[in-house]
Design a protein around this nucleic acid. Sequence first.
DNA 1: GCATATTTGTGCGTATGTATT
DNA 2: TAATACATACGCACAAATATG
Lengths: 323, 323
Amino acid sequence: MARPAASAAPRPGTSSPPPPPPVSRAAGAPGEGDPLVTRGPGAGLVPHLPGAFGALRVSTSPVGRRVRVPKTAELVASQLRRRIIRGELSEGDALPPEPALMAQFGVSRPTLREAFRVLEAEALISVRRGAHGGARVHAPSPVVAARYAGLVLEHRGATLGDVHQACAVIEPPCAALLAERRDPADVAALRDLLAACDEIADETMDLTAADLTAAQSAFHLAVVELTGNKSLSVLTGMLQHIVEITGGQPGHPAAPADQPDPLGPAERRLKARVTRQVHATLIDLIELGDVAGAQEHWRRHLAAPDHAIPGGPADRCVLDLLG
Amino acid sequence: MARPAASAAPRPGTSSPPPPPPVSRAAGAPGEGDPLVTRGPGAGLVPHLPGAFGALRVSTSPVGRRVRVPKTAELVASQLRRRIIRGELSEGDALPPEPALMAQFGVSRPTLREAFRVLEAEALISVRRGAHGGARVHAPSPVVAARYAGLVLEHRGATLGDVHQACAVIEPPCAALLAERRDPADVAALRDLLAACDEIADETMDLTAADLTAAQSAFHLAVVELTGNKSLSVLTGMLQHIVEITGGQPGHPAAPADQPDPLGPAERRLKARVTRQVHATLIDLIELGDVAGAQEHWRRHLAAPDHAIPGGPADRCVLDLLG
DNA sequence: GCATATTTGTGCGTATGTATT
DNA sequence: TAATACATACGCACAAATATG
């Protein structure tokens, strides 16, 4: 076998280069002696996540599924990914240097580097070179998921208004839930975010839209996050990120800034004030426990022309995340 | 100034394909036919300002965060990815063999392979080796995005009930929209899916839950997809996929099948019949145009104990997508 | 079974960037 | 500010496994 097995290294026909032992030296690395890449019988058992063709079901009818053999780099990436997701490797942790990982996994450097590129594309690690460089671990964020979801949406020709409409569907029920709960902590948190919006709107004289909309987006996200539902929070974060990188940046080619700044500073300041009032009203409705009122109020806010840009440029602006 | 160009042509005699243009990616000479990877000016764009740590009240905006220089493999992967998303490369298309791509991009084989691993991890290509092997293109699917979103949720300790609750928030407004629209095509499509559920429930005697729940999930997904909103469709597909690979598979370690089959065939058949009736009622409400009724009916269905398993095992079953 | 085309995994060398001294 | 050591980035060539006809 070409691949060095975990424990048994047959080494049948010794070629010119003697294959190194799978685990030779671990430079002060904790958790030494892990088999790590045991591809033999375990490879068939591990679901290894949905591959390119979906989960393989041991069902009856379609016997004979095209099975894609996992590459070695993919196995290495999966092992590292699992340790990151499980929390064994936390944000900021530094992975051992390449030679140590090569020894631990029993793979060569190109293979290890392929695994690095995969994890780097997933933003789970960031590799820096230099003196104290190496791979550092990052926690998974909705931004990563948003990138791929955005790819799917772009491939399907979704518009910016489509994404906005999704937010308009998700958020009102969350507002209703908060009103039903009437938790003072929720109200306080929202008031804090509202104050943050005010501060930004007041301090910045040029009133660049990016900062203000970011603060307003944080308010919208909080409405979802305070419900405690992690799935909706992640989904909303994804949608917001897609909106942000598509239409929020003025320099983006897909930005609806074809007409450069149709609003003057005065109108923009007025709009900010109106938005602030709408947000404040939501907090009041939540504090009062007006379930239906909060939901309807938030639904209208998200359906408002100046917020959703319905039928306007947003509905003709297909997503363009790739430049 | 880029890295030294490949001075030697990579064995042009061995491959029969058209003579690859000797794109040597000479320094500062972008005049070649298809430079593809032109890193020069792009790298010069990054500000690369020194570490601004103790920035005490910088005047305008905190521009100047840590920039991560993109690796060559990442650039190659981005170019291929863009061509896939843009539709220039469609599902099933075969990419040129490795030597041709090496010549086109002007990179070495390890670099190209790193790009392949990245795209393969994103399920945008699938590489098979052998005579007529090579890289084949696949359309992006919500399954890919679901994988990363699931990673985020697992890292945050989300439960299966959490994911289900997200579906319960998204779907009722969609049902309301369908009832408001009263499109006969929607009703027909839902009736077809209902019939498909019946067929599966009747034909399969062993009544393995996997097939039936898949058909029922298709019905739920259709409620969202028929609204025409692509974002919500993709999101719902992601959530369903997470549920499917986590709790749906009986063999999955995270499946709530610790108590093996608490339901006998009789009870399960009864449940299927009840579910069928609930689905049929939704179709009727949509056909009648009962907006509030359809929304409330679907909300209750998704909150029903036998559907959401609320507070039961689902709420204690954290997602486990990595084995 | 055999020939062929293709990807896969490996080793080693050089270039480049980063932090420390 | 300049020299230096460390760690990754990228390149090339060889041997092996694999799928097709």
